[in-house]
């Protein structure tokens, strides 16, 4: 089964980390992706631009509204994701616990619904 690991973290803290230390974190994330790949569990990963640069789109009564960031204060923002292959929820959680981002942020584990489940 496929799972989406949503990486939430405080962007302001992330932005204030000195480059040298940031490199260390990036190396850890690269190693994590490598371990996923070696185990045949890796599907995809991406990092997102700052949430404040994002927009919210709604269409109500035929009217499109665009709201630009920054949005209402929340401590952590959705900043990146992994899509992985795992046998079950327990295995997916195990992979999430290994993700270095779990030590500085929060990882939300969501099973991706199969096309035959609707």
């Amino acid at each position: 089964m496929r799972y989406l690991l949503m990486l939430h973290a405080d962007e302001t803290v992330g932005a204030s980390i000195p480059p040298e230390q940031m490199k260390g974190f990036m190396n850890q994330m690269a190693a994590y992706a490598q371990a996923l790949e070696k185990a045949g569990a890796f599907i995809a990963t991406e990092a997102l631009d700052f949430a404040s640069k994002g927009s919210l789109i709604t269409v109500r009564d035929g009217e499109t509204r665009v709201q630009d960031g920054p949005f209402a204060e929340s401590r952590e923002q959705f900043g990146g994701y992994f899509i992985i292959e795992a046998a079950d929820d327990d295995e997916a959680r195990k992979w999430a616990a290994r993700c270095p981002a779990a030590t500085w942020g929060t990882i939300e584990v969501r099973r991706i619904r199969g096309r035959d489940e609707y």
Binding site: A31, Y32, A35, K38, R98
Partner: peptide
């Protein structure tokens, strides 16, 4: 170098991760 990467990626304990790095 490559295998260290896999080991680091599989580590949950931050202290062990730092040691391997």
């Amino acid at each position: 170098l490559e295998i260290f990467g896999v080991a680091i990626g599989l580590t949950t304990d931050p202290a062990v991760r730092a040691y391997l790095m």
